[in-house]
């Protein structure tokens, strides 16, 4: 299938899953499963950074419209998209990054994936809850929400990839 079509369908599915299902699952302790950063993460690496920023913004805003968060998701996802190439390069071995066409847990290898995605997701969550609560008096609550949600979101994103991303054949 055409790459463009694949990613467009993914875009819609991620928005709907996040806004209509995950945002309504409330487990208490401030846990929120946030899965849409995975979409930006799975975007091809040779894509223009400016373009991926705009896609991230559009996606975040679509989710905002459906969950009354007024630009909060958009803001956090733009941070994610902006930091993505920087963090990728930081943890890559010599020429891994140049050869990598499409990033996922299989093409990257487990440890590189955990560092990169984990750190990006951490910044995304921290940014999101920092602005959601917007009150430094409640810093403990912000950290609690960030850390707990981070763990659940991360495991959820890994699970999604294990289920849906086809495993490449061994070379």
């Amino acid at each position: 299938m055409n790459k463009f079509v694949t990613h467009s369908i993914r875009f819609v599915v991620f928005v709907l899953v996040q806004a209509l299902i995950l945002n309504h699952l409330e487990f208490g302790w401030g846990i929120l499963i946030i899965v849409y950063p995975l979409f930006v993460f799975l975007l091809p690496n040779d894509l223009n950074i400016a373009f991926s920023l705009i896609i991230a913004f559009a996606m975040g805003f679509a989710i905002d419209l459906l969950s009354d968060t007024f630009g909060l998701h958009a803001s956090a996802l733009v941070v994610f998209a902006y930091l993505k190439p920087l963090v990728f390069a930081r943890f890559a071995k010599q020429d891994d990054y140049e050869n990598l066409k499409e990033a996922n847990i299989y093409t990257m290898g487990t440890s590189w994936f955990i560092y990169t995605f984990g750190i990006l997701l951490f910044f995304h969550h921290l940014w999101f809850f920092l602005f959601e609560i917007a009150n430094f008096g409640e810093i403990v609550y912000i950290i609690q929400k960030t850390v707990l949600s981070l763990i659940v979101s991360f495991l959820f994103s890994v699970g999604l990839q294990i289920i849906f991303v086809p495993k490449p054949k061994e070379r």
């Binding site: 950074i49 400016a50 920023l53 705009i54 913004f57 975040g60 805003f61 968060t69 007024f70 630009g71 909060l72 958009a74 803001s75 733009v78 941070v79 902006y82 602005f131 917007a134």
Partner: peptide
């Protein structure tokens, strides 16, 4: 240029939010 775009998008999003 990328950074400027980043700041611009952030501004729109956060201005709407706040």
């Amino acid at each position: 240029r990328i950074f400027l775009l980043f700041v611009g998008l952030q501004f729109i999003a956060l201005a709407t939010y706040f």
